[in-house]
Design a protein around this nucleic acid. Structure first.
Lengths: 234, 234
DNA sequence: GGGCGAATTCGCTGCCCGGCGAAACGTTCG
DNA sequence: CGAACGTTTCGCCGGGCAGCGAATTCGCCC
């Protein structure tokens, strides 16, 4: 992740060596959709002993290709960023896909949006992840250098939930919560709660049959895309 | 160069392994500007024995990263194509350059255009290479599946040198000739001869002091860019 | 607190592969 | 035709590294 001199053979070789192993390549390809996996899952997926996987994962993390996140006794691993995904894809397939699929990588979420639910006081499941992605894609949230709400993001929340929707309290305004079904982040913190309440208040989402399950209403399906770049199921 | 399945860890690892060696990485970086080097030069450049370099080069050629061209007792090696250069750059430097610098990689030629000369009956040196690049960039020549003149290219030659400038004779219409100063191709064959004669006839180039040396005239400097996408020295 | 499961550390083994020099091959030049 | 040169093939050596199992640490749950 350093600046990297323009042409250093040793650096190039070192980077390539990271992907030059079948097991590590399997890991990176599995992680390429941006989801987080546990170390054990990756080991099983690649067909190697957990100890072997641990060493490889450690190497990939040190090199900055992967980032790690502990949750309980699990260790979740994700690609460090889209640039890494781009590099892996460039090397894997001949012709890489368009640099930045403008719509976001939310297509996968479509078939599972039914898994929307609440998590404490905010939205989780595929819906939560989709909203999180949309907020980031539209520049309302920034993930560089930690998670933060941007000025446009603050304005967006005001437009959504009325004046001063995020009073200064002890609670963090935004927090990334790792979603245990989607293996990706959704929005928690005060803003996550405001977002959840607002969506219910507008009638864009409603409770499903069993507690915690949530589904999008027709009104929400119509109104949400006007507010946010999201791909909802047809 | 096969189609390559979308996600094959082994294939990814194999490709990465090609660049995962310091010596091979040095080779690819040296070749990244598109010029051709001899095997011995590359060996010296990387600081390894010729025998060692030979094995590495053979591997890179087999994998389709490099293409080879024998000329006398020398063996010239070039990157197989711009996609390869793009892959190497992606992996080498963090942010790669723009996918296709529209103007072509002719900037390097600018400072050495004085090296223009004739080679038998066609133009060589930096001028020859620049013209060749321009013909390819403008779609007048195609290098996919061997060198060939496209229909627009045929029209272009007619506009340049009058009706039926390329009568059907035994001689190949277009031929790529490896330029020994620029280490890249210039245009030979019947079309190369026509191009050379036409440029002299229009007064766009003229003989220099010593035989075989050529220089561009002011008229040529003004007229050539109207015909072809080329970067001439200021 | 005890037990379980996930993850990591450690030591070891085996193999892959990059390096070299010597010799063979082909081309160019005197 | 013989010498010089660029390149390739061959055999060998050495180091690096991926793999495993055993032991250890740590967090969670009954």
């Amino acid at each position: 992740m350093s600046g990297a001199g323009p042409v250093d053979p040793a650096a190039l070789a070192a980077r390539a060596a990271l992907l030059a192993d079948r097991t590590r390549a399997t890991f990176c390809l599995a992680l390429i959709d941006g989801r987080a996996w546990t170390a054990g899952e990756l080991a099983r997926h690649a067909g190697v002993a957990p100890s072997t996987a641990s060493v490889h994962l450690d190497r990939l993390v040190r090199a900055g290709l992967l980032v790690t996140e502990r949750q309980g006794r699990h260790r979740y691993l994700r690609l460090a960023g889209p640039e890494v995904a781009r590099t892996v894809e460039t090397l894997a397939g001949g012709a890489g896909p368009a640099p930045v699929p403008p719509g976001l990588r939310a297509s996968r979420a479509a078939s599972r949006l039914a898994a929307a639910r609440t998590c404490y006081d905010h939205l989780a499941g595929a819906l939560g992840v989709t909203l999180f992605d949309g907020l980031v894609a539209d520049g309302l949230l920034t993930t560089t250098d930690g998670l933060a709400l941007t000025p446009p993001g603050r304005a967006w929340f005001t437009a959504l939930a009325g004046p001063d929707p995020l009073p200064r309290t002890g609670r963090p305004v935004v927090r990334a919560c790792l979603d245990w079904t989607e293996r990706r982040h959704h929005l928690a913190g005060a803003a996550g709660a405001v977002l959840c309440r607002a969506l219910f208040a507008h009638g864009w989402v409603e409770r499903g049959r069993d507690r915690r399950s949530v589904r999008i209403t027709e009104a929400g399906r119509a109104a949400l895309p006007d507010r946010l770049t999201v791909a909802l199921p047809s």
